[in-house]
């Protein structure tokens, strides 16, 4: 089990905390999602948990062992996929994986096998500099799997990926979960979070504002809503009405009665809407 207690981090040292006393725990084999907009503190938490940032305040333990006591063995057990591809541009995809594999004391997977897994087999011997953004992202993801880690840290693993490739990556993540890998995933893509996370935590301005399974969050905070598109002044506008609210129901009635309606859809609350409701801002902000 991974436990994080009262974690805080202040980059500037002047009391502007990027992360403020957050606490959570992740069970073995769980996919735990950190959902929040850019600047919320997601990467900060991940960097502290992986030892890239020094722990200033709070505790981070892995099976009761504090991160400060972690030695080489810890790094043999984890895999990290970074948000911004950080590859050796002059090396090929194959070489990037091969040399990285050489840094581990544990058996590693075949670079070609991993490249095949993420759909990069044909570009294996091309320089990473020639890869597209999506290809680089896949390579970074593949690299995180090279040592068959027990714990995976994935920072925006599906960013820059087309839907088909993103689906492939999600399948791989779910496959890992089945094998008992614990996964810490940060994203601002609520669809990804909903699809694959066992539990999510909403992070905003360094605070966790909610944490539960996606289903329970929707049950707790979600409201049925109606999305209406209508024409006004020769332009098409959109409005969202939450049916549990009296003022929204009245406004909907008024709109239907007086405006030229183009489309009308009822929908279940999404995690993004819940996030907006809880924080007043969107996930893309």
């Amino acid at each position: 089990m991974i436990e994080v207690r009262n974690l805080s981090h202040d980059y500037s040292g002047k009391g502007n905390y990027a992360v403020k006393k957050i606490s959570f725990q992740i069970d073995r084999g769980e996919i735990f999602g950190f959902l929040g907009p850019s600047g919320a503190g997601k990467s900060t938490v991940q960097n502290i948990m992986t030892g890239l940032l020094k722990l200033q305040a709070g505790e981070v333990t892995y099976g009761k062992v504090p991160i400060g006591n972690m030695r080489k063995q810890f790094f043999n057990r984890i895999g990290v996929s970074f948000e911004h591809p950080n590859l050796y541009a002059k090396l090929s995809g194959y070489e990037n994986l091969r040399y990285f594999a050489g840094l581990f004391d544990v058996p590693t997977r075949s670079p070609l096998e991993l490249l095949d897994l993420v759909g990069l087999r044909e570009s294996a011997y091309k320089k990473a500099a020639a890869y597209s953004k999506g290809m680089k992202q896949r390579l970074v993801f593949a690299r995180a799997l090279i040592n068959d880690p027990e714990i995976l840290f994935l920072d925006e693993p599906t960013a820059s990926l087309d839907p088909v490739t993103a689906a492939n990556v999600k399948d791989i993540i779910l496959e890992k979960k089945k094998r008992g890998v614990t996964i810490f995933l940060t994203t601002h893509n609520m669809y990804t979070a909903e699809e694959i996370c066992d539990r999510v935590a909403f992070l905003n301005d360094g605070n966790i504002v909610a944490m539960d399974t996606p289903r329970d969050l929707k049950l707790q905070y979600g409201e049925k809503s109606v999305r209406v598109e209508y024409r006004e002044d020769n332009k098409v506008k959109t409005d969202l009405f939450f049916l549990s609210r009296d003022e929204d129901r009245l406004a909907l009635q008024n709109l239907v009665g007086h405006k030229e309606i183009q489309t009308l859809h009822s929908q279940e609350a999404s995690l993004e809407q819940i996030f907006i409701r809880l924080t007043g801002r969107g996930l893309q902000a």
């Binding site: 992986t50 030892g51 890239l52 080489k72 063995q73 790094f75 043999n76 984890i78 990290v80 970074f82 911004h84 950080n86 590859l87 050796y88 541009a89 990285f100 840094l103 581990f104 004391d105 690299r143 840290f153």
Partner: peptide, 17 residues
């Protein structure tokens, strides 16, 4: 080069001391 491309971060999360 490694710092620039952040490849050094990848090295930092391996057993390399």
């Amino acid at each position: 080069d490694e710092k620039d491309s952040k490849a050094v971060n990848a090295l930092a999360v391996t057993p390399l001391t």
